[in-house]
Design a protein around this nucleic acid. Sequence first.
DNA 1: TTATTAGGTTTATATTATAAACTACTTTAC
DNA 2: GTAAAGTAGTTTATAATATAAACCTAATAA
Lengths: 97, 97
Amino acid sequence: MFKELDPLLHSQLRLSIISVLISVKDAEFSFIREKTESTAGNLSVQLTKLAEAGYIDVKKSFRDNYPLTTCKITKKGIQAFENYVENLKQYIQPGKK
Amino acid sequence: MFKELDPLLHSQLRLSIISVLISVKDAEFSFIREKTESTAGNLSVQLTKLAEAGYIDVKKSFRDNYPLTTCKITKKGIQAFENYVENLKQYIQPGKK
DNA sequence: TTATTAGGTTTATATTATAAACTACTTTAC
DNA sequence: GTAAAGTAGTTTATAATATAAACCTAATAA
């Protein structure tokens, strides 16, 4: 009856991250942090998980001598997100086919 | 930016339960168990949580000598569900204001 | 040169979800 | 009438997650 909700996406913070990344080319750590209003530690952990799953690519570089982490959603990530949203509809549109 | 997702509803099983209850007058434990494909233990725990939050009413009776647990969503539960769905849209409809 | 800030990561703790074990009966078969 | 199996759950223990606190390294400012 109910399709499984990808546990990696069914988390408020990770879903926020993907939601932010889906509509931009890429995003910096601090930008994602502001948008999602998360702590750096939590964000770091969740970005790592999403990266390990292949949902995002994380690029580490330097800018003005400081480390800079940039994230970009992958095709797999987009696919997973779209699938998640599709499955979720079963839950939130009761009665609909 | 992102509104908080009610942690009580942002759980696959509890969301399934509410999703089932929202479209029926009431439902028996075993019916919910079948629809949600959950184990009895897990279901019992999650029903208790939803009841403690006032999202559902749980009625215990007997039928044919066996215990019978019947659940019904409350106004508060409906409200919470509608609110949850509304907030969730921010996450899954990127770009839409 | 030590104090503060940037930009994170790692580790520890608290919270959740899930599964396994248990309770309290009832029915069926011997 | 009593042992075995089934119904309908609850409780407890364990595994998985999320979050926060502490830490790290290097850069800049005082």
